[in-house]
Design a binder for these strands. Sequence first.
DNA 1: TTAATCAACGATAAAATCAATCGACGATTA
DNA 2: TAATCGTCGATTGATTTTATCGTTGATTAA
Lengths: 166, 166
Amino acid sequence: MKYSVMVEYALHSLVYLIDVPKNESIGIKDLSEFQGLSETYLSKVLGKLSKEGIVSSVSGVKGGYRLNRKPEDITFWDVVRAVEGEDPIFQCKNIKANFAYQNKNQKCESCSSQSNCTINSVMLEAEEHMRNYLRSKTIAWLEEELLRTLPKEQIEEAKNFFKKTI
Amino acid sequence: MKYSVMVEYALHSLVYLIDVPKNESIGIKDLSEFQGLSETYLSKVLGKLSKEGIVSSVSGVKGGYRLNRKPEDITFWDVVRAVEGEDPIFQCKNIKANFAYQNKNQKCESCSSQSNCTINSVMLEAEEHMRNYLRSKTIAWLEEELLRTLPKEQIEEAKNFFKKTI
DNA sequence: TTAATCAACGATAAAATCAATCGACGATTA
DNA sequence: TAATCGTCGATTGATTTTATCGTTGATTAA
């Protein structure tokens, strides 16, 4: 069980978009080149973020992406959800009719509708704890943290790379 | 991203083992038949639980499985870990050398060793919140809950099914 | 208006993972 | 000794993930 690398690509890419002014944008080519990622694949990731309104895209020459919301209004959970979807990590696959924890012939729709399957509700609750933590961390917070902890040269390096491309 | 069905199979199967006396056991055939699951596949699941000391197995005729620890000493997390392994959900795949949040040529071992990759540590912390909740729920608690909430007939049905097989 | 650049999208392919089966093996019991 | 049962490894098929390719349509610069 693991998150797809898309989550990693998305979170990392967003960092570079934080300081992009409203009228500018960073192209997929620069984002992928700087991070050493596949251009086409990364564009799928950004597409997901775009569809969820986390970034906005600019078509055509000089096009690219920029944040569509303020960094303090983008949480880690927003990003994970945009990329991975809303489905719960634990899905009750309905262990058959004579499964003793539900009524016969009822299938396990009872599980997915959080009613009476205890096991399922524990797993959903556990996941909710993870989500709540992810909701508490924003991209704005991330930037502060990075500025505080990273060597200045690394920050400058990124800044310079993207500056020249705008 | 999702847990494998093994987790579901494991948790459900454990419930039937709670009341099995120390000198008895329930065979994979009965466990799988009652739940409508593949016998061979379920045996893989029980094998994982056995390897982690959650259940113990009895070979040979009249063999099977029983709990190897007291139900109050088996948490949901123990089960998930036994089945899914210890690897974190979010694994930093090392976004290359010129990734700005780490030193060049250092790869992202820094991420996996929780040092300086902020993104990684947020994801690990989030996961830890989920794990902590799973650690707080035991199989003993689960049984109480089931006894409290399930229709008596369902409980009897399971009890009778396994009683006759012992 | 034309050419070049770029995001969006769908089809496809390759790789990895998951679900499940099969067969051989060793242990146990009757 | 024969039947039963858990263990283990190999294998298969299905699904998911990762990645590429080619097309389309929007935008800009020439």
